[in-house]
């Protein structure tokens, strides 16, 4: 986890396997945070995409997810999960693509919706692009060496105050 997070106020946290039931429970909790005014719908949308990113592309093993308020007031969503080397490389490539289209993410996402669905994929390949759009490209993706030949994928999306609450 990012050491900055240790200094900040956690609003939601999960560590361990991320089953479908865990993901559902976390999304319910996050919706509760929206209902109580602690996070915005935008933060929920980022969290939802990142949780589902782990579910669809993560490898077996313990994952860590959290929503926390940073000391400057911004809200961040951070996920750390094992991923195959190929999935980690794909996530990094997607983040680079998002960064290179920083001024045109919305039209890029709209155009991608028209592309045929790869039936080998459960997702549409749009999640990280959308997260990047929602957090105005304040998205960091990094890959660390993991266990059993896997990578450890770390994704942090930071939402400035106007988008967080």
């Amino acid at each position: 986890m990012d050491s900055d997070a240790d200094q900040a106020m956690e609003l939601l946290r999960h560590s361990g396997q991320l089953s479908a039931q865990d993901a559902q429970r976390l999304l319910e909790e996050a919706r509760g945070l929206v209902a109580s005014g602690k996070i915005s719908r935008c933060v929920f949308r980022v969290f939802m995409e990142l949780i589902q990113n782990i579910r669809l592309h993560g490898a077996e093993g313990s994952a860590s997810v959290r929503i926390y308020r940073e000391t400057d007031g911004a809200l961040s969503v951070e996920t750390v999960n094992p991923a195959s080397k190929s999935d980690a490389i794909r996530a990094l490539a997607r983040a680079e693509e998002a960064a290179s289209h920083a001024d045109s993410l919305a039209p890029l996402i709209r155009a991608r919706r028209f592309m045929p669905h790869d039936e080998n994929e459960a997702g549409a390949g749009l999640g990280l692009l959308e997260v990047s759009r929602l957090c105005s490209c304040a998205l960091k993706v990094r890959e660390n060496a993991g266990q059993a030949g896997n990578s450890e994928l770390v994704i942090k999306a930071r939402l400035e105050h106007k988008n967080s609450l």
């Binding site: 719908r41 995409e49 919706r113 549409a124 959308e130």
Partner: peptide, 11 residues
């Protein structure tokens, strides 16, 4: 709320 996969399906 809808996720990005659903946005493609809605289209």
């Amino acid at each position: 709320y809808f996720n990005t996969s659903s946005s493609k399906c809605l289209l």
